[in-house]
Amino acid sequence: MMQYVASGLVSGGIYATMAIGIVLIYRASGVINFAHGELATFGTFVVFACWSAGLPLPLALLIGLLVGAVASPCIEAFVLSGLRRRTHLTEVMATVALFLALNGLTLAVFGEETHEFPALVTGPPIEAFGLVMSRQSILVLVVVAGLTLIMAAMFRFTRLGAAMRAVSESRESAELAGLPVRRIVWSVWAVAGMAGVLAGVLIAPIVYLNVNMMIDVLTKALAGAVVGGLTSVSGAITAGLLLGVGESLVAGYVSTQLATPFVFLVLVLALVVRPQGLFGSAPKVKL
């Protein structure tokens, strides 16, 4: 059983990394960015292309992260901000359209072949406490733990983190306080874009790199973000990990075919029973 839990934590860690980006963007702009996964795929292909061209993997990774950090805010700056009638529906339509456009762009630029992506760490699997785990899987867990700590530290101790929380609480108040709201929102999108590319680079050695690699991850990350409360980064991380573990246990003990439906049944259940999610708060109604 512990082996299933461990492998579930690895896939859940990747969902959580993606869900962090979804939640950050939702908090900053009130938008669910359906293009988040495709941007991650594009960035991961950039890493692969740089590495294939002979660059060292860390440098290729840095370039991929930069692509995520620049391309992601462009969605807010040039697409969402440009919507003449900015409603939830037009925002959703725009990000869904971008999802399809980016998918097509990645296909056009990098082709439809599936590639073996280099693992960030190599070597034989590690055996401990009766568990066998690949080094890449252990790296995923380390990265998720590190990302959680970095996010917590950023929000708690830095002025930018406080500004991100302020903008997420009330954009109007932030503007009245004279904060550079657009720059802060773009910073949030940049951090989310980097987290997405990081998730892509972590999962690519496990599932192989291909154009549709992140579609399954994005939908499960969305489920994690919603189950976690949509506005809570810690909720997204916790829910992402729990969904990964649950999915792995269902695959191991019930049926692999029921693993994915399990994730979305949990999502539906959460929406019915606790729509504010694990860590979200119920909307306040003034009487």
Binding site: R159, A162, A163, R165, A166, E169, S170, S173, L179, P180
Partner: peptide, 18 residues
């Protein structure tokens, strides 16, 4: 007032010094 209710007093002041 438009203070940020979910932030501490210290964080609100810190943002004032942006």
């Amino acid at each position: 007032r438009h203070v940020f209710g979910g932030l501490t007093v210290a964080d609100n002041l810190r943002l004032g010094g942006w």
